[in-house]
Write a protein that binds this DNA or RNA. Structure first.
Length: 361
DNA sequence: GCGGAGATGGACC
DNA sequence: CTAACGGGTCCATCTCCGC
């Protein structure tokens, strides 16, 4: 029993937001579709959230300024992001996915893992059939395409779903892991972003195979203990992390201010407005929180934070407002520069428990 | 040495 | 040629402090 292979599935919706808009508006399918988050600072000022494959073929990528996208694709269809609506569609899809595995873990609005070690089981053929069924049910119920990866752990499942897209199904068996990862550019490895890829490339590491040949101590020295160890394992396709449904650990909102400002009244006004939203969601979920964090982002995109942890959990608007104002005033007195954006986040959650005083000894 | 708190930075969607 | 430029979550690391 010791070395029993796991079977893990990763489900990823294809260019999710763009695909939903295409579904809602079939005339635009076949054209480049770009979903934008506009800051409200002027005509077309904002960033690309998602784009469909036509747009990607023209070089458009997530995170890109909309103005630049427009140069690459003047004829593209540019639509404002409708996050709340996408979330409703997401909830519908997650409910379907949830039924297909022993354990379910949602990782973002359009992605989830399933542990199918027992249910789909053992021989990967069963898991493959399960994946086909799941993709079909999502398609039948929502008209949306997804991509699925199957592997012996979350890391491989995730990289497999990314490997064949869109509408893909990619299976990587345990004995295929090293050949699957080896030739990939190191930047493709989950957990390796721009910064880390740069560090690795400076030392001649181009592929995951190159990374695999490095000494663990060297990696730890270059990248730090946790990160170094993790990438050492990841390069070998090793990832013991379980599929677990997780509670949200923080909840926050951010915005661009209409203009760069260091006016405390204006900043507080906007932040408290974001706070209304946070508080109503928190109370809906029956959460309490102890920590509030204010984030200020300067016109050159440097972010700074101020946070405060209370000694007891709260969920009242008045408590939140009081702490938020205090943090903002404190921030501005220490860093009296203009801000382009600001945000407020609550964390350190608990559920209100009744009669804790009687139980606590 | 260990923890929680606070601040920063990286990664990913 | 470069600069242009959203919003949200999680994780690791470092520093400081009390115990």
């Amino acid at each position: 029993m010791a070395g029993m292979n796991r079977v893990v599935m990763h489900i990823d919706m294809d260019s999710f937001f763009a695909q939903i808009e295409e579904r809602e508006n079939p005339e635009i399918a076949g054209k480049p579709v770009i979903i934008c988050v506009f800051s409200g600072r002027g005509e077309g000022i904002g960033a690309v959230s998602t784009s469909n494959y036509h747009a990607r073929n023209q070089g458009i990528k997530a995170g890109m300024p909309c103005g630049r996208a427009k140069k690459l694709s003047p004829e593209g269809i540019y639509l404002p992001s409708r996050k709340d609506f996408y979330k409703e569609v997401s909830d519908q899809i997650m409910e379907i996915i949830n039924r297909y595995g022993d354990a379910f873990e949602q990782v973002s609005i359009d992605e989830a893992y399933l542990e199918v070690t027992h249910g789909g089981g053992k021989d990967i053929g069963k898991a493959e059939n399960l994946a086909i069924e799941l993709k079909e049910e999502i398609k039948n119920r929502t008209s949306l395409n997804s991509s699925v990866g199957i592997g012996p752990n979350k890391l491989i499942a995730k990289m497999a779903s990314a490997h064949k897209k869109p509408d893909g199904l990619c299976i990587v068996r345990p004995n295929e892991v090293n050949d699957f990862l080896g030739p990939m550019p190191v930047k493709k490895l989950y957990g390796v972003g721009k910064k880390t890829a740069g560090i690795l490339q400076e030392d001649g590491i181009e592929t995951i195979r190159d990374l695999r040949e490095r000494d663990p101590l060297w990696l730890i020295e270059k990248l730090g203990k946790a990160r170094g160890k993790k990438l050492f394992d990841y390069a070998r396709g090793i990832d013991p992390s379980p599929v677990i449904s997780r509670e949200k650990e923080q909840f926050g909102r951010m915005m661009s201010f209409p203009e760069d400002t260091d006016d405390s009244e204006i900043i507080i006004f906007h932040i408290l407005e974001l706070g209304e939203d946070i508080i109503s969601k928190i109370r809906e979920k029956g959460y309490q929180f102890r920590t509030v964090t204010f984030t200020g982002i300067t016109p050159d995109y440097i972010s700074h934070t101020k946070s405060l942890t209370l000694d007891h959990p709260v969920s009242e608007k008045i408590d939140f407002f009081e702490v938020s104002e205090k943090l903002i005033m404190n921030y501005l007195s220490k860093k009296p520069e203009k801000l382009r954006r600001g945000g407020i986040t609550v964390s350190n959650f608990s559920r209100p428990e009744r009669q804790s005083s009687l139980i606590d000894y």
